[in-house]
Design a protein around this nucleic acid. Sequence first.
DNA 1: ACGACTCTTGACCATTTGATCAAGAATTAA
DNA 2: TTAATTCTTGATCAAATGGTCAAGAGTCGT
Lengths: 210, 210
Amino acid sequence: MPKRQATKVQKTRIQSHNEALILDAALEVFSAYGYRGATVDQIATKCGLSKPNLLYYFKRKEDIYTAVLERTLALWLAPLQALDPDKDPIDELTRYISAKLDLTFARPEASKLFANEILHGAPHVAPFLIGPLKELVTAKSKVIRNWVSQGKIRDVEPEHLIFAIWSVTQHYADFGVQVEAVLGTKPNAAKVKTAVTDLLLGGVKVQNAK
Amino acid sequence: MPKRQATKVQKTRIQSHNEALILDAALEVFSAYGYRGATVDQIATKCGLSKPNLLYYFKRKEDIYTAVLERTLALWLAPLQALDPDKDPIDELTRYISAKLDLTFARPEASKLFANEILHGAPHVAPFLIGPLKELVTAKSKVIRNWVSQGKIRDVEPEHLIFAIWSVTQHYADFGVQVEAVLGTKPNAAKVKTAVTDLLLGGVKVQNAK
DNA sequence: ACGACTCTTGACCATTTGATCAAGAATTAA
DNA sequence: TTAATTCTTGATCAAATGGTCAAGAGTCGT
């Protein structure tokens, strides 16, 4: 009878602590340099561990990457999931855009990590895209289509509306350098929120022009 | 007196031909794998040259990268430059969105190359961003602001409208894998164009609702 | 045909980097 | 305290990769 679990099932205090350190550091490094651009040494240095020690917790570089990537996927689904068919469409969309922008400004590295992954053909998250993500979009598109047929919102293409919300909101993280360069200053989160929300919901055209 | 030019000034037939081959191959490889992810060998193989031969035309990997990157920057400015203050705003914006989407579908690799560069902090194009790009955006923002003050379009934030057009249009190239996965099929360019244009110009809200 | 120049390549080098391993240090349950 | 287990690391390796070089092949104007 072994003194400890024969098959490891519970994490040590040190283990949880170091794994968290590693994933935090890995997010920063991977999002800044991409998968190939990042080195295990960089990550190890950033979290104050030696390279062999880091590889004691994650056998391969790719394991670190998939671990940190998976941690962000959940974050991605949550806001869209919250879209409520029974509440006011404009309120719901406003809240969705707001939540996405909050994420963008609070966790730009997470957004960049995901963007990099997709940009390079989604080699690690293809199943996520054609599985849970597609399902969720399909479901919520139905909700939006309902709003349209009830005359509560204009006749938009739901999938493309969702793409638009994704791209515009994430733009402020993924293309943050460009935004800052063009504006000449870091954008103000609140201003961005009103500008983006107003634009997506209200459009450009003067609609009441007689 | 030398038989040929002492300082090389004119390109050989073979030279122009091979440089073009290289840049085409480099665009594909860099856009697919990023700067660090791409290898000189990959590019050489793709264009049917040996690695040393390729390095005969471009001394360093970085030289290939900057060359192919520069070739795309001009492409980027043109459509926005064409925005005409004296014509109808809606027509002009429609044309701009249309031109951007044409680029997206015709040259997705160019879009991805640029996206990757910005995503990683724009190490090679920072001067372009704070120089010509910023100037152009500032100038065209004035145009848009004029349209607003003349009541020809809604009161939008010009810079953020431009960001929105950029992000939404480029999304179909940069996040193409995701778009295709979610839709279950390659998107139809014409459909995307009407959906995106209608959304950005008309918004989501039913404006005439009494 | 000839000589000068351009183009091409096999072999090679130095560095980077992901990964291993054996041995020692620290931790933990009894 | 003790012994099993977990944690840590210096040294090291093999592969990948950017880049070099000398020598030969091809091209071109005359």
